[in-house]
Write a protein that binds this DNA or RNA. Sequence first.
DNA 1: TCAAAAATTGATAGCGCTGTCATTCGAATT
DNA 2: AATTCGAATGACAGCGCTATCAATTTTTGA
Lengths: 335, 335
Amino acid sequence: MTNIRTVAKKAGVSVATVSRAMQKPDVVSEKTRKKVQEAARDVGYKPNMMAQVFRSKKTHSILVLVPDMSNPFFAQVISGIQKAVRPRGYNLVLGNTLGNQQTERDLAQLLITNQTDGIIQLSARYPLDEQDKGGHRLLPIVNCCECVNDDSMPTVQLQNEEAAKAMANYLVGLGHSRIGVITGPPESPLTIGRMAGYKAALEEHRLTFEQQIIVEGDYSLVAGEKGVAAILSCGVAPTAIFCFNDEMAFGAMRELKQQGLRVPADVSVAGFDDLPFSKYMNPALTSVRQPSLDFGAVAVNQLFELIEGRVMRQRHQLLPFELAIRSSTCEASNL
Amino acid sequence: MTNIRTVAKKAGVSVATVSRAMQKPDVVSEKTRKKVQEAARDVGYKPNMMAQVFRSKKTHSILVLVPDMSNPFFAQVISGIQKAVRPRGYNLVLGNTLGNQQTERDLAQLLITNQTDGIIQLSARYPLDEQDKGGHRLLPIVNCCECVNDDSMPTVQLQNEEAAKAMANYLVGLGHSRIGVITGPPESPLTIGRMAGYKAALEEHRLTFEQQIIVEGDYSLVAGEKGVAAILSCGVAPTAIFCFNDEMAFGAMRELKQQGLRVPADVSVAGFDDLPFSKYMNPALTSVRQPSLDFGAVAVNQLFELIEGRVMRQRHQLLPFELAIRSSTCEASNL
DNA sequence: TCAAAAATTGATAGCGCTGTCATTCGAATT
DNA sequence: AATTCGAATGACAGCGCTATCAATTTTTGA
């Protein structure tokens, strides 16, 4: 094995100098730096990163905990994280938790055991046990895309409530007075926030809230189908359905079609996320656009504030949304 | 810091015994194991994984090189890899290369520098320089989803040519005699294989090959739109278009609609991959189903053969395809 | 019961590197 | 030429753990 000592011998300098020449080139003289670089090249030296990591206690990697890799929204967020992390010389370790809390905990232990420098958590809960909470000082863990508003960790989140309210307002503005909703898991802060926005919009326009056209989903394609089936099965169909993510909206449109209803002529459908695909649906899906790539960038910034021990100006960052109005929504037909 | 020595002292045993009690519980007596476990719990001992990794030269992580994280097909493959890797106690490190060869090389250096135990490469090229090729013995690098048929690394790939041929045959069987194609990058083995299958089907039915209705794409949504535009711009439109992935098919369907052509009444469209979304398109997309999750599992198996130095029975694994026939294709209209 | 074999434990080196501190060198100043 | 001072380098400990081998204890079998 060619190690640092081989290089030192070849270059006729001490191991410390070799180390410095590689890690902090500005503190060694031009001449020795050249000498060392040549020697390293000659003997084909590759520093053993594991030794470096062990010694310097910096892994240069961060862990992303993601409940579901194959969800395209998360895939985009991860892309954003990746892009923000690479220029800093960090690597991404991916932890697919499948929503399982134990897996999440196991993976988060990587932080405690020095295997990673920080964590970006894409689910709603603090990934570690209470006992590992690191006392007064915040551990380098950042929540992204969900809204955990206690102070266990900094967050980066969308203006969720406002976004849902804006979409609901838009639908109401089209003349829809009965708007069905397919939500996320009811205990999720995301669902709670978006429902609050929805209700606020109804109240503003003095529309009555109907529990029976609100159904629960799990963000999957089939949840959209089942959701529509449930809504249709209990009486007069609403003229619009607001799905709390795009995949459920895809499912919803499919089921509506299956049941002989036209989108948007009979029922308007709106989604949330604005996946790249949504524009390509037929009809193209109206949705709430989330700045998915920015999420990653901002979360990484937050995380490095923690890792480098700087004071955080703002613990909870809110990112703006946009409405992407397309052809899956139209004016309510006046029957 | 509570390290192994703290535990040893507390338990009244040697550090070696503590190490053994943690790593190979079966070689220490029940009594001491209990004693050590208690002591470890009492002092809140978390082994420093970095020291372990450094010392034992096993990182228990594997690197996945992926050209584009937000491609849902890759996302699925990665999911499959993840699932196969977790039970072995390994973690996944994700390298988003964006198709950039330098990034790929940099990341692949993690193998050389002992930062990872193996690599699964989702692009078509060998990720390291020739000089790092490890001489006679194969380095633990496996290619997945692409077809590199030299012996630089084992591969897991689809029966590509057969799949494309089957789809082309199916379209011909519906009465389509002029079938446009939107391919991948022309130099890619994937494209070459699929084109070979397409041509074979034509020849079998004595149909003429028309270069002008074959256009190049890059697997993106917009490539599908542009591809259709290009095909339509040069004369009589074909009655079917075969896209070498589903995303391009989505783009193609959109552009066809935009140009006033109906799918499938005027033009049938077929894709490749069978993404979960494809079934939800309107019309639902006919496609070649790839066993995306199996890819991951098989690739991981191959990789561990290499890591554990076993002899490989089969260097190049072929996985089977299926045709998913849906409503974006139908019999050719007889004009 | 006692020697031999097996199971368990302890002592210690050292993985490859970086941090620390001491030393040396070279240029600048008097 | 002598002194000073900062820059550059060297020497070396030791990070926390595991591998190795030696020492000890327990078990086994005659």
